[in-house]
Nucleic acid binder design. Structure first.
Lengths: 141, 141
DNA sequence: GCTTGACCTCAAGCTGGCTTGAAGTGGCAA
DNA sequence: TTGCCACTTCAAGCCAGCTTGAGGTCAAGC
C-alpha cells in the first residue's frame, strides 16, 4: 500500500496542497520522499493534520503547534493546555457578554440606542477596554 | 471649553494618536478643525470611540462599523445585531467545546494523548472541520 | 518521442488594523 | 528670533497564515 502523495492527502484531508507545502516548510509535517516530483507522506500525516486543526482551533499559533509536535507522537505540555483553557474561558466570558449586549440592543425599543441604559452600560464597558477586540473578524477563507 | 486635540483624546481614550488618524482617514471619526497643526475633536468623539471598541469587540470590521455610524448618532441595523449575536453563539459553542477538550487532555492520564478516547474524539471533530480555527490567536499590539 | 498537465520552487501578494519612519510645519518659549 | 518639539503627511512595514503567479520539471499517455 503506497504512501499517499500530496494530492491524495489534500483530497482526503481537505487541506489544500499549497497549505500542505507550507506546513512542511514550517516543519509541522514532513514528507517521506517523492514519487517523481510529488511528495509522498506517511499515512500518519492525517493524524498530524488533525492535531494541527485542533491546535489552531484552540488558538495555538503554527509555531506553538510545531513546538509541541515531537518526532514520535505529540508530546503536549499539560500546563500549556490549562493556560489555553483559561484563556478560552476568558474569551468565552467576553463573547458571552458581547452577545447578550447585542441581543439586548437588537430588542431594545428606546428611540435611539444611546438612550438605552443597558446599551450605555455595555458601551462604557467597551470604552474602558473591559471587552477586548477579537483578533480579527473573519479573515481567512 | 475648548475641543480636545488629538493628544488629549489619545490620552483620555487610550487610543493612540496614530490610530485616531487612521480612524479619521477611514471615516470612522471626524475632526472638527485644527489648532495649529493639531486636529481638534468634538467631545462626542469619545462616545464614538466607545462604539468603535464595542463594534470591534462584537466582531464587526471597521468598514462595517463605519457603515453603521450615520452622521447623527449611531443608527444600527437590528437585524445585523442579531446575526452577529448568532455568530457569537456559534463561536462560543466551539470555544466551549475546545476548552473542555483542553481541560480533559490536560487531566487525562492515558500514557499518550493519542491513546485517550476522549482526545481522539475531539481530534476527529477537529479533523473533519467541525471545530473552526479562530480568526487568529492574538495578533495586535 | 513528444505533448500534456499536474506537480515543483521561489518570490510576491493578500487581509485587517494598525505602527513606524522620513521629511515637513507650526506654535510657543527663551 | 530662533530653536525646539510635538504634531503633520505619506508611504511602507508588520503580523499570521496562507494563496497566487511565473517559470521549470517530470511521469505518463498517445
Amino acid at each position: 500500500m503506497k504512501d499517499p502523495d500530496i494530492s491524495e492527502v489534500a483530497k482526503q484531508s481537505g487541506v489544500p496542497a499549497s497549505t500542505l507545502r507550507y506546513y512542511e516548510e514550517k516543519g509541522l509535517i514532513a514528507s517521506n520522499g517523492r514519487r517523481g516530483l510529488k511528495r509522498t507522506f506517511d499515512p500518519g500525516v492525517f493524524e498530524k493534520l488533525g492535531l494541527i486543526a485542533l491546535g489552531r482551533a484552540a488558538g495555538f499559533t503554527l509555531d506553538e503547534i510545531a513546538a509541541m509536535m515531537s518526532p514520535d507522537g505529540p508530546r503536549i505540555d499539560r500546563k500549556r493546555l490549562i493556560e489555553k483553557a483559561d484563556e478560552l474561558d476568558e474569551k468565552i466570558r467576553q463573547l458571552t457578554a458581547m452577545r447578550d449586549g447585542l441581543r439586548h440592543a437588537s430588542a431594545c425599543r428606546a428611540p435611539s440606542h444611546m438612550e438605552c441604559p443597558s446599551f450605555r452600560r455595555i458601551l462604557r464597558a467597551a470604552t474602558v477596554g473591559r471587552i477586548a477586540a477579537p483578533a480579527s473578524a473573519a479573515p481567512g477563507k
